[in-house]
Nucleic acid binder design. Structure first.
Lengths: 188, 188
DNA sequence: ATAGACATGTAAGGGGTTACATGATTTA
DNA sequence: TAAATCATGTAACCCCTTACATGTCTAT
């Protein structure tokens, strides 16, 4: 799956490994993280298998860049995979693992921790909303294709919705933790 | 982090490895999946480190059960960790990786795929809502502690919110894919 | 009788993160 | 001159999933 994300990213527009790693970090890390360690070997594999080709482009600063673009075969492979139904998303959320124990903590402490979490997610939300504005601008200026715009917008909107939703949970959780302080377990 | 989830689960109530694996599958898989392969070695480690102890309990059907409960030390270790701020959640979502290519697919196909996804998440949502009703009942009947109730409710509410949010995205995505059919990229 | 649920574990293999290695160019 | 950014890769290690191994009891 990581591989298909990389393939899709160069199908949006030709990119170097360096560009890809940065792109993943900025816009795709919330659903498919990928660092240098996965990007470079994948690109080499694509080229070996005829899914991508690269063109050496002198950089304005730093060493020469290898800019990869997808081949016809690469695009076929990508779309064949995209047409299949997707597996369930898989998440590791440390915050929720910690929340499992919030009932054993003094409630003021739990409330503080939830407030911290709220802050982190509010920041993320603002960041994605910013990216969305930038994306729209790039479309208007004709810097990206319609196809790339749709794909990127879809995942960005999901990032935004996901963060909004997480914020709602933080507030719901605060209300919950506050309200159960006086909860009676045994029947009156 | 997996370890702390297992520790929290036996802090909620004493459980066997078998019970734990089932519990993870039912209520915790959306934020911290754990199968037999991780549960049994973790329990053995806990006992070696004095974080948990087990009691052999004859099963009504099948072999003897090893029911683990947390020790004072285990609870301390758990709560110390729970008080620290949490790392970002990490997700792999195949659906979004596929969505990156939806702009390159005929829109009817993309719409069908989004509709399938909507169905999967609607099912998940119904499942979590069902679990929530069961949890409330178990609290009323005094079968679980207040502490366990809060922890479990927090993560369940997150499961519910997460699925609701995903459904919203599916609908938003459908609207987006429909609307961009006639999108002009070049300025008029 | 045979399949499925109960129950506990081990082991191997694969994938992914992280750290390492190298080097040019710009900016403070 | 030191730090940061640009740029491409490799390698080791760790975690995690998956498959395997074993055995009992119940229901069909």
């Amino acid at each position: 799956m990581r591989d298909y994300a990389i393939l899709a990213a160069i199908a949006h527009e030709p990119r170097s490994g360096y560009d890809l790693a940065k792109w993943f970090d900025r816009v795709a890390s919330h659903f498919c993280p990928a660092g240098y360690g996965s990007v470079y070997p994948a690109l080499a594999r694509f080229e070996r298998d005829g899914l991508a080709v690269h063109e050496a482009v002198p950089s304005e600063r730093g060493p020469e860049r290898k800019v990869y673009s997808v081949t016809e075969k690469g695009k076929e492979v990508l779309l064949r995979w995209a047409r299949e139904p997707a597996a369930n998303p898989q998440t590791r959320d440390e915050q929720l693992v910690k929340a499992l124990s919030y009932g054993m903590l003094p409630s003021e402490e739990a409330l503080e921790l939830l407030e911290e979490a709220r802050g982190r997610h509010a920041e993320k939300l603002a960041y994605y909303e910013d990216l969305e504005r930038g994306l729209e601008a790039r479309l208007r200026e004709g810097k990206i294709s319609k196809e790339a715009y749709i794909g990127t917008l879809l995942v960005l909107r999901r990032g935004i919705g996901g963060e909004r939703c997480y914020l709602e949970w933080c507030e719901e959780a605060r209300a919950l933790v506050s309200s159960v302080e006086g909860l009676r377990v045994d029947a009156p």
